[in-house]
Nucleic acid binder design. Structure first.
Ligand SMILES: [Zn+2]
Ligand SMILES: [Zn+2]
Ligand SMILES: [Zn+2]
Ligand SMILES: [Zn+2]
Lengths: 168, 168
DNA sequence: CCCTCTATGTGATTTTATAACATTTCAGAG
DNA sequence: CTCTGAAATGTTATAAAATCACATAGAGGG
């Protein structure tokens, strides 16, 4: 087996919540946004988004591909990468560069600069907002004349559960 | 040819400076730090650091490997990856996650949380400091109980030169 | 209906990274 | 100085991640 499948042990992102509703609502919101913008949330694309929403964690493209195959879709890499491209470009999914993996956005539709907290032990990923123009990086950009177009902000460490489990 | 070689057109990182001295000084500093800490800056490791210092930009592992081969070292991937592992672990080189590439540190020896500005047009990379605990991400971490151990902060955009070149 | 553009399916390939094992080098012990 | 064990290097092979190229299928406009 190439990938971790199954959502049984998937940690919710640092806090309990009604996960079924969380998936439903976000999918519905995505459909609405696509309708508004004339985007086609095709079956593969919808399925990939659904898979990423079900897990509250980052999945690699090949893990997604395995799940797509199980669901009866094509099983070659471009199938997964093309769906992911669409979802990332339109803000429904973010890529976690540190992990070469993808995670569903919790604020679909709204343009925002995400920041992520990644647990090195259980792989949970939580999305927060970053404020790229404030702080040291923004200051450095202004002083050198660098024009920021996109930012990658990823913190690696221990999530609350794993920190507690591993003492202290 | 697999990679961009040659430093002729390599942009200096957003500002003119005495590059020869820049390379020399940083290499000397690295040797001193290694001596202090009992680390072995072996020929391959030193060469990789030198190559990265000469280019003020990120190089992929295979580009480095090509240059190592030219310099008479082993030409199989582990040669490059092992040297890079050493240099990254000891803070002489940083990995740019967005590019799957590596860049020499401009503050070798000192522990710090780097932030990078990456020009999407000319590939120049400039290092700045980030302040992970301040700002939105730090606040999110504190409020959820996430323990940050390491951060990846990378801004993509246009460097001053390329911004000017491409109009306004 | 026909044409065109977009999306999907599939095979092959490129790029990035690691595993596994043999050989060499070197610092420190005796 | 010589032995010895750990660290470093060289090399083969393989895994993992991403893209290319081209054929087929669908949706929508005329
Ligand atoms: Zn988001
Ligand atoms: Zn955790
Ligand atoms: Zn320089
Ligand atoms: Zn640095």
């Amino acid at each position: 087996m190439t990938s971790r499948e199954g959502s049984a042990s998937a940690p919710v992102a640092f806090s309990d919540h009604d996960h079924a509703a969380c998936v439903e609502d976000t999918l519905a919101a995505a459909e609405e946004v696509c309708a508004e913008r004339g985007l086609r949330l095709t079956p593969v694309r919808r399925k990939v988004l659904e898979l990423l929403l079900q897990e509250h964690r980052a999945l690699g493209a090949y893990a997604i591909l395995d799940l797509l195959r199980d669901a009866g879709f094509g099983s070659q890499p471009p199938v997964a990468y093309r769906a992911l491209d669409f979802l990332v470009k339109n803000g429904f999914v973010h890529k976690i560069e540190r992990l070469n993996a993808f995670v569903a956005c919790v604020h679909p539709g709204e343009t925002h600069s995400p920041a992520f907290m990644i647990c090195r032990k259980c792989d949970a990923v939580a999305e927060a907002q970053s404020t790229p123009l404030k702080g040291a990086l923004g200051a450095a950009a202004r002083s050198t004349g660098f024009q920021i177009e996109r930012t990658v902000v990823e913190a690696e460490g221990l999530c609350p559960d794993c920190a507690e489990a591993s003492g202290s």
